[in-house]
Design a protein around this nucleic acid. Sequence first.
DNA 1: ATTTACAGGTTGTCTGACAACCTAATTATA
DNA 2: TATAATTAGGTTGTCAGACAACCTGTAAAT
Lengths: 253, 253
Amino acid sequence: MTVKSARPEPLQEVSPIRRTSLSDKIIEQIIDLISRNVLQPGERLPSEKDLCKRFGVGRATLREALRSLAVMGILDGRVGEGTFVSHNNQRYLERNLQWGLLLDPKKVEDLLETRLMLETQTAFSAARKATSANLDAMEATIQGMENSLDRPEQYLRFDLEFHLLVAQATQNTILYHLVSMTRGYLQAWIKESLVSPPSSPEGRHRAQSSIQEHRAILKALKSGRAEQARQAMKAHILSSSSDLHQHLEQTTA
Amino acid sequence: MTVKSARPEPLQEVSPIRRTSLSDKIIEQIIDLISRNVLQPGERLPSEKDLCKRFGVGRATLREALRSLAVMGILDGRVGEGTFVSHNNQRYLERNLQWGLLLDPKKVEDLLETRLMLETQTAFSAARKATSANLDAMEATIQGMENSLDRPEQYLRFDLEFHLLVAQATQNTILYHLVSMTRGYLQAWIKESLVSPPSSPEGRHRAQSSIQEHRAILKALKSGRAEQARQAMKAHILSSSSDLHQHLEQTTA
DNA sequence: ATTTACAGGTTGTCTGACAACCTAATTATA
DNA sequence: TATAATTAGGTTGTCAGACAACCTGTAAAT
């Protein structure tokens, strides 16, 4: 009997049926636990054997969930010790920039636009909400940039750190995450576009003016002038993006 | 001899020694294949048994790699068919954004602030990039709102649709997804705050003015006046958020 | 008291097996 | 002949057990 019974309603929304694997559900549960702070950063999870019994699944299934979370940088498995919740949210970034190369040029453009939006707005908000500790940390990263003019990769790290600190200064964790992720993906491109002039005089000059831009942003933040901070950030990102755009057009053309 | 020898350099970078598991290496290889276009979007991978032989690993290890890539949206496993490269190989960006947001303890105020930022900016961008098809679709949703003043849940659907259309009009899929996600998280609250005045005269009045606000946004978008669109959206969201805030303070106090 | 050896627990990996499922060819039926 | 039902093979999802590599803290030996 494969006769379909009559449909009372015209089925206007297709049922979003999707095979959800067990490991997917486990992932969701663990993420939920973390987001509700039941599992805190740095904390150790129960052993895999324990988790298997609690979730009622085999070890293979559980491990597929744990490994997925580990690959995303949310968990951190250590042989012989256990599995821990990443205390470093930065780890998420390090992981991402690895496959930021999967993005196509069109997406990079979108990311740049998104980044411009997010960061100009975070600067605006940060000017009103930044604590003195936030500002001091920014000052330190600028100092770090000046001290590493000859080490591009280290310079980039300080640069990234500065922008993350601005986002953090909004005291809005969601914004912070959005900024850090967009930035994480772009980092691969930024790095690639920077290696071309490694420490040429031109590169040094670029870095110098970049530092000045950062100083302008920090100054606006310190004085609490939101609109000025927004403009300073906008100018900085636009001038910084122009290098990327140039590099993008080279690779596509 | 525990005497420390002189350090020529202050060891500024700890050796990045980290146990790389086999599945990590497999992930790297697969990502490399995809980024070099050896594996194209939509293409089917060899079966797990085959891949095991080629990589020289057990099936559990291989599956941990494949599942991780699937969770990130890079691969797509279908029971009985095989494992495929995601046809839109950029979906993983949105997936990761989603996981990142999921992990955050979401504060409603943070969400509201983020939404205000995102949507005012999308309105600005949409004013410059919207196609006539986009604008027509918005017109239709406003019409839909007017026709469902007595059906709150349907009214809300049109409301949501309008905002998504604005985001879509930016022609930036990343922005679209961000707006869609933040809105998705808020939707539960919005619905709850609306059911209190289901179809009271007060509720109707609120809905009427909301429709006018939407019209103002659409008008600005049609004329391509970006700044005006931004302000209209800002006004709309602020007035809409005030209801939520009111409702929040009621429930928390 | 310091070092060594050991035991228990933990993650990483392999193997084999079965269930649920899809596809396509084969067979049975109208 | 054309259509429907069945079957066979392949594929992913899940489970169970086993072993290797590894870490930690304790007990034994120096």
